[in-house]
Design a protein around this nucleic acid. Structure first.
Length: 832
RNA sequence: GCCCGGGUGGUGGAAAGGUAUACACGCAACACUUAAAAUGUUGUGAGCUUUCAAGCUCGUGUGGGUUCGAUUCCCACCCCGGGCACCA
């Protein structure tokens, strides 16, 4: 037999599979469906990364195994091809983004094919294809119709380098996520999506899905639900004033709190600089000039900067007005400070310096009264207990934020804080001064990008009629060809310069109107792509009901940990919306992905992140050239736990290749008779391996699955002669991991058909049980001996054997046996 | 600060509360070879005793606890990685 030469055999089998259409998902098959999904990649210029391969190979193994088990598997692939890097690259080298994209996807596809991934390529989709983004635009129209898309002038995070508006999620440490440039604040009209309307359901429905606990936690925290109360603080100067009348009696300050039990300790209020109340009250504010100045300063800073810049709090009092604490009618001052956010709660807080560290810091700085109203129940500190006077300005350097018993709280004094917040609010609600409220950290989603390479937002602005949606029959609104796709200095989308394209007629009144020139963000296309795979060629609907019913929901979705809070949340939101409006049949259920897993990233040598600048990027092409695709697959699965991040080790690749070499040469030892050589031990090992490999694949423990296959190969290698049956079993088990070599060996063993189309072997529970067992003998829990016995011997029997053995006599002699612990077929422990 | 991971040989890692270090890498010795590579065989946690056959002690970040028995469960702490961060 000739040497193992992956360069020759791998292309051969890929061609055969393709010609025989082996991996096609059958729309009409009666077999049970299994929809396995990997995140479709953004086809960057750098090409496929070994990190991509890890997730793809893992689900490919699963797909191959499921097919062998008789499932009708849908395992598709596509391209999330709109996006900034492509556009930036295009700007840099002066080639149109469409051409760059075409080139990059071709390269990705070539690389993926070389890995032997069993995708159904007939379902390939591309988000930049008008036939695809027609439906992305259609979804936007539906959102608009239902009032979930709206345009609003708002301060956005602006990257002066990319000249683009950024979502909060895209600003990392005050910097643009892509280029690292400092983001600034800029007012712009932006399309927004009301994801906040779905906040509650996005939390609740996590109960229905099988995601890793940490992913669920991350999503919940991102949404950030907190339940509390809105409490009203009146402004006494305004009671009966003309201003109050003008506003219809609405001029009061609502405040959101989860700690209503600390209300008696509230000594001032703080408003966010953007709070519109300040503007409304400006006639009453004596020092409005200074206040205005402060607001101007803080507006310049982007939000993240404002929060992280320094812990030192700043603010200014609104002189001339006061608020009234509803629990004790005490007059308290009002401040503006930028540590309070307009985007959370009501844009105003009640400050309780005794029991909130931020308020405490602020109160210290501006010398405001601090009142303790909660006494810790456990470990009472002497200062806390001794407080009698309501005011305290010196002493403690920290606020007590825990629970306890109320003090200085009128008739609520002595009550437990947990109960007090209910009681106090009940009382206030009766008086009409409070109501229950729930707030979320999650904000609406900025959906406009002032760029070229994205889906045009299908909206028209008419001077008379306002924003009008494009008629559905006019979709897709194709991205026009422009000469200049660089973003303009004004921050307007490059599409604004495509005058002919911009000019259109109002769908309502027919007069001259303008198209929206903003495009959608990256996420738009990836929100719903898994639906399109079910019916990729449909031109009547985003996907037909019957096919959605057939394939959805996704049974298993694997992707990167970095997408847990963005893509995963966004796509669940859009899915729910589509389900609500009936674009997805009701029977599919409210969640798109039944199960989600994520792979750990692959680090470069030395445990640092792979990056071009560090020069430690491993290119899969190189590995395949030197070792073969099967080796790469085996190594990536063997390197360590799937969900854990792990450094790449070139030496480790060798081990994977050696294993395949060994597999190759096992063929030489195989006899051609169907007779099974009588070898109980080997038989047992084989059945154990069948069980182990099968179970491990299902629970993503690929590393131990490969290890089990290696053990079996080593054992087979020790045999004088291997019977064909055993050999074929081994090949079948190995086939999902190393599909090319097993196919070749299958053929060389003189068998017809494909190895990858064999039935997945079943194990025999009876054969797994060993006949003889190494039983552990312990004295006081320490291993003193191992004895070989027949399986199934009773405690008495084992005891007899042990007590007679010379080795054990010296331990047990002259000592009293207090207790014996016996685990059948495993262990006996003598307690002396 | 908070929330998630994770600390096991020289390295990646394996262990339903029951033989700690499977499997692989690396290293060492030997075999094959003119030689090297490749391959194969053997050894490989630390320390001690030693009649060379083995035996003992210690060992899974640290300190306690539960248990006949803990890498695994509980409590406290230390270190590393990731995420979130003035969210009222």
């Amino acid at each position: 037999m000739k040497k193992y030469n992956p360069k020759k055999i791998e292309p051969k089998w890929r061609k055969e599979w393709e010609e025989m259409d082996v991996f096609r998902a059958r729309d009409k098959s009666k077999k049970i469906k299994c929809y396995l999904l990997v995140e479709f990649p953004y086809p960057s210029g750098e090409g496929l990364h070994v990190g991509h391969c890890r997730g793809y190979v893992a689900l490919d193994i699963l797909a191959r195994k499921k097919r062998m088990q008789g499932f009708n598997v849908l395992f598709p692939m596509g391209w999330d091809a709109f996006g900034l890097p492509t556009e930036n690259f295009a700007v840099k080298v002066g080639i149109h983004p469409a051409i760059v994209t075409k080139r990059n996807t071709a390269n990705f596809k070539r690389q993926e094919k070389k890995l032997g991934l069993s995708f159904d390529w007939l379902r390939e989709i591309k988000t930049t294809d008008p036939d695809y983004y027609k439906w992305t635009q259609w979804i936007f129209l539906q959102l608009f119709k239902k009032g979930l898309a709206y345009k609003i002038k708002m301060p956005i995070n602006w990257c002066p380098s990319c000249k683009i508006g950024l979502a909060n999620e895209e600003v990392v440490e005050g910097k643009c996520e892509r280029c690292g440039y400092n983001a600034v604040r800029k007012e712009r009209e932006q399309w927004m999506l009301k994801i906040t309307k779905y906040a509650e359901r996005l939390i609740q429905d996590l109960e229905l899905v099988d995601y890793p606990e940490r992913v669920k936690i991350a999503q919940k925290e991102w949404i950030g639900k907190s339940e509390g109360w809105e409490v009203e603080f009146k402004i006494p100067n305004l009671l009966n004033s003309a201003l109050l009348q003008k506003s219809g009696g609405k001029l009061k300050i609502p405040v959101f709190t989860t700690r209503a039990d600390t209300l008696f300790g509230c000594t001032y209020l703080v408003l966010a600089p953007e709070n519109p109340l300040i503007e409304q009250l400006k006639d009453k504010i004596i020092n409005y000039k200074f206040v205005e100045q402060y607001i101007k300063e803080s507006k310049k800073k982007i939000e993240k900067e404002r929060l992280s810049e320094s812990r030192e709090k700043t603010g200014i009092e609104l002189k001339g007005i006061k608020a009234i604490n509803p629990v004790n009618n005490r007059e308290i001052p009002i401040f503006v400070a930028d540590y309070v956010l307009m985007s959370y709660g009501t844009g105003a807080i009640m400050a309780v310096p005794g029991h909130d560290q931020r308020d405490f810091d602020f109160a210290k700085k501006y010398n405001l009264p601090i009142i303790d109203v909660i006494k810790p129940t456990e470990k009472p500190t002497e200062i806390r207990v001794s407080i009698v006077k309501p005011y305290r300005n010196q002493g403690l350097s920290k606020a007590y934020e825990g629970e306890g018993v109320l003090i200085n709280s009128g008739r609520f004094t002595g009550m437990k804080s947990e109960d007090a917040r209910e009681r106090i609010t009940e009382w206030l609600i009766k008086k009409g001064l409070a109501k229950k409220a729930t707030h979320y950290k999650l904000r609406d989603w900025i959906f406009s990008r002032q760029r070229y390479w994205g889906e045009p937002i299908p909206m028209i602005k008419c001077e008379k009629c306002g924003w009008q949606s494009v008629s559905e029959k006019d979709l897709p609104i194709k991205l026009p060809k422009v000469k200049e796709y660089r973003p303009s200095e004004t921050g307007e989308s490059p599409l604004a310069k495509a005058e002919k394209w911009v000019k259109t007629n109002c769908p309502k009144c027919g007069t001259l109107a303008k198209r929206e020139t903003d495009v959608m963000p990256n996420w738009a296309g990836s929100n719903w792509y898994y639906l399109r795979y079910c019916d990729p060629k449909n031109d009547k609907k985003l996907a037909g009901d019957n096919l959605l019913k057939k394939w959805m929901p996704v049974d298993w979705y694997n992707g990167g940990m970095e997408h847990t809070t963005l893509h995963l949340l966004y796509s669940r939101f859009i899915y729910k919306f589509l389900w609500d409006i009936g674009a997805v049949p009701k029977s599919v259920g409210p969640e798109p992905y039944k199960k989600r897993t994520s792979h750990g990233i692959i680090l470069g040598g030395g445990g640092i992140k792979m990056s071009k600048s560090r020069g430690n990027v491993v290119n899969p092409d190189e590995v395949i050239k030197n070792y073969g695709a099967d080796t790469l697959r085996i190594y990536e699965m063997f390197m360590g736990p799937f969900e854990q991040m792990i450094p790449w080790d070139t030496k480790g690749v060798k081990g994977a290749r050696r294993f395949l070499e060994k597999t190759w040469w096992l063929k030489e030892k195989t006899n051609n008779s169907k007779q099974i050589t009588d070898n109980k031990e080997l038989e047992c090992l084989i059945h154990k391996t069948i069980k182990k490999v099968g179970d491990d694949i299902e629970s993503l423990k690929f590393n131990t699955a490969v290890s089990a296959l290696m053990i079996l190969a080593n054992e087979l290698d020790k045999q004088e002669e291997i019977s064909l049956v055993h050999y074929l079993l081994f090949l079948t088990l190995l086939s999902p991991f190393a599909p090319h070599i097993t196919e070749e060996l299958w053929e060389r063993a003189g068998l017809k058909g494909f190895c990858c189309q064999q039935k997945w072997p079943k194990y025999d529970e009876k054969l797994i049980k060993q006949e003889t067992i190494n039983l552990i003998v312990q004295i006081n829990g320490k291993v003193r001996d191992k004895i070989e016995i027949k399986a199934g011997i009773s405690e008495e029997g084992v005891k007899d054997i042990v007590l007679k053995s010379k080795k054990m006599i010296k331990w047990i002699e002259n000592k009293e046996i207090k207790k014996i612990i016996f685990v059948p077929d495993k262990l006996i422990n003598f307690v002396l």
